[in-house]
Simulated scan of single mutants.
Amino acid sequence: MKNLFSIFFIALFAFTSAQDKDSKETANRFFYELTFKPRKDSAKIEKVMTVLDIVKDRSVYRDYTMIAQDSIIKIQIEAMQKSGTFKDMSKSIRMPKFSEKIVKYYPDMKVQYIERIASGFSPLGIAYSETIKFDWKISNEKEKIGAYNAQKATAEFGGKKWTAWFTTDLPFQDGPYKFSGLPGLIVKIEDEGKNYSWVLQGNKKVPNWEELSYSEKISNMSLKVTEMPREKFEKTFSDFKKDPFATARPMMTQEVMSKTIPGMDGTIGDMMKKQEKMYKDFFNSNDNPIENYQPQDKKKK
Rank of each mutant, 00 (worst) to 15 (best):
N3V: 01
N3S: 15
L4P: 02
F5C: 04
I7F: 03
L12C: 02
K21R: 08
D22V: 08
K24P: 04
T26M: 13
N28H: 14
F30W: 07
F30K: 11
K40I: 10
S42A: 13
S42K: 09
L52C: 07
I54T: 09
S59W: 01
V60G: 03
T65F: 10
T65K: 06
I67P: 00
A68G: 02
A68N: 11
I72Y: 07
K74I: 02
I75Q: 15
Q81M: 11
K87H: 11
S90C: 06
K91V: 05
S92N: 10
R94W: 07
K97H: 14
I102Q: 05
P107K: 11
M109W: 13
I114K: 05
I117R: 07
A118E: 07
A118D: 03
A118S: 11
L124R: 12
G125Y: 09
A127M: 15
Y128H: 11
E130A: 08
I132G: 03
I138N: 05
N140G: 00
N140R: 13
E141D: 11
I145C: 09
N149T: 12
K152M: 12
A155Q: 06
E156M: 10
K161D: 10
W162L: 08
T163A: 07
W165G: 01
W165D: 05
F166H: 08
F172M: 09
Y177D: 10
S180K: 12
L182I: 13
P183F: 11
V187L: 03
D191G: 04
D191S: 01
E192T: 09
G193S: 14
W198K: 08
V199E: 15
L200N: 05
L200F: 06
G202L: 07
N203G: 13
K205G: 04
V206M: 13
P207L: 01
S213R: 02
E216Y: 04
I218K: 01
V225K: 10
V225H: 13
E227N: 12
K241C: 06
K242Y: 03
P244G: 07
T247V: 02
I261W: 08
K273G: 15
M278F: 01
F283N: 12
N286S: 11
Q294W: 09
Q296G: 15
K299Q: 15
